[in-house]
Design a protein around this nucleic acid. Structure first.
Lengths: 243, 243
DNA sequence: GGACGTCCTTAACTTTTGTTGGAACCCGGT
DNA sequence: ACCGGGTTCCAACAAAAGTTAAGGACGTCC
């Protein structure tokens, strides 16, 4: 994938949540990015490490997670092309969680130094990236609610719909189906349940004719039931720059 | 409480996580703040509202929460004097959650306009506040882990220790005891369990001689057991500006 | 094309947590 | 001093989720 296409995905996403001037877009397009390939299931940055770059996903899926002393892992967020999952490392240099690939991925790295210089030169760009980290935090808030208050089937539906709404922005939803390349183990880690229970819940949603999950692809069978179960209100994604 | 004391609490807290120049401190001290009193259990800003100010806690405890369609409420974070719990509203104008007082509180309001002007004038101050919102997000990540992966007794212990470590910064820990003015209903909402189960867990920790919770005050009975149970690693609080 | 590993699937059983309902306690107001 | 409302506390039962164990599907590598 050419480096230009990567930038385009980023800019498309930023435009959804912030109004950007053409001049600022040119600045972002001029950002030096070094591209690297990663296999599936590989750590990009680890908890405790000191980051010097931010990572822009050009292609593939990533996830952030934390592992506790007992060895249990919690997935905190899923990430798709055009996103910068570790933007927070710009000012929180020591990572407090892991960032890793779910699928094979193409990642672009932008140095903290470059970004900080750009921010000083163009405060509006800084605000746009700041806003991006705030939306990240808003998604964490909703994730807390999901894990803390919703029954397991609703949790799964909610995570699916959030992912779908984000994939939609980058044109990656194909009718009633979209990618969600997680194993049942990982789905459990995202929802705060065990893999066995994740399996039960997936089966239940299939048997009730709501949604089908097969080989990393979600197919919605009954959109109305699906939305109702998920209790989804996308306001927290803050996708409107005018507000 | 005089307006100066409020600023002092804010600056003390910011100093813990960022290095600040004297000149920037003077700028923060010069910020116009309008102070207001709130009774306990009162909404400061509500989900869906458009915020025009940020709220600095001068005195008292606050909490952020979200309520889902079924009526269940999830507490997302607790806040203590010196903090600005809705700093995120600076760039995410429409609230995606509630901010309310737990106890009677004195709150200082700083307009978004004032803050944005200060940021343009002093990019370093902007970065410091940005960092503050990033730490906020880091605390959400840990909260996800808490609710998602730890058994209920560990969840309670973890929330208690997080609160204690933050109270320590502002000199509000008195030996083995500190304030935690939540009802058992609210503790349940914070931990993602019911009030009845919260009561069970509190009783269990008391019977095991680990920690006592009485009338909004926590008293640690066995520090070693307490720490071990909570599985607490404070790195996510990012309290060292040098890193 | 067989062996291996990973993931998915399911069942049986255990533990944790939710639900319901009620009694005791505490505090503020009259 | 007494009342009333909100907590706190508790027990019995129901439901949800965790644990353990084991077979089956599928893809990959020799």
């Amino acid at each position: 994938m050419p480096s230009d296409a990567i930038r385009a995905a980023l800019i498309r996403r930023l435009r959804i949540s912030s109004a950007i001037a053409d001049e600022d877009i040119r600045e972002i397009e001029a950002l030096p990015i070094s591209v690297r390939q990663y296999p599936a299931e590989t750590a990009v940055v680890r908890d405790g490490e000191r980051a010097t770059d931010c990572c822009l996903i050009a292609d593939g899926f990533c996830a952030r997670s934390k592992t506790i002393a007992s060895g249990k892992r919690q997935i905190l967020s899923l990430h798709i092309p055009g996103e910068i999952p570790d933007l927070m490392s710009l000012f929180l240099h020591v990572m407090d969680h892991d960032l890793s690939t779910l699928t094979a991925a193409t990642l672009g790295f932008i140095s903290h130094e470059t970004l900080q210089k750009l921010h000083r030169r163009r405060p509006v760009v800084a605000e746009m990236f700041w806003r991006d980290t705030l939306i990240d935090a808003a998604m964490f808030r909703e994730w807390i609610v999901n894990v803390g208050q919703r029954p397991a089937p609703a949790r799964l539906a909610h995570v699916m719909i959030e992912l779908r709404e984000r994939l939609r922005i980058i044109g990656r939803v194909d009718g009633a189906s979209f990618e969600m390349p997680l194993t049942q183990e990982q789905i459990g880690e995202a929802l705060g349940i065990t893999a066995v229970h994740a399996n039960r819940v997936i089966r239940q949603l299939r048997e009730e004719g709501i949604v089908e999950l097969h080989r990393g692809r979600v197919t919605v069978l009954d959109e109305r039931k699906f939305l109702q179960l998920a209790d989804f209100d996308g306001r927290y994604l803050h996708q409107s720059p005018t507000l």
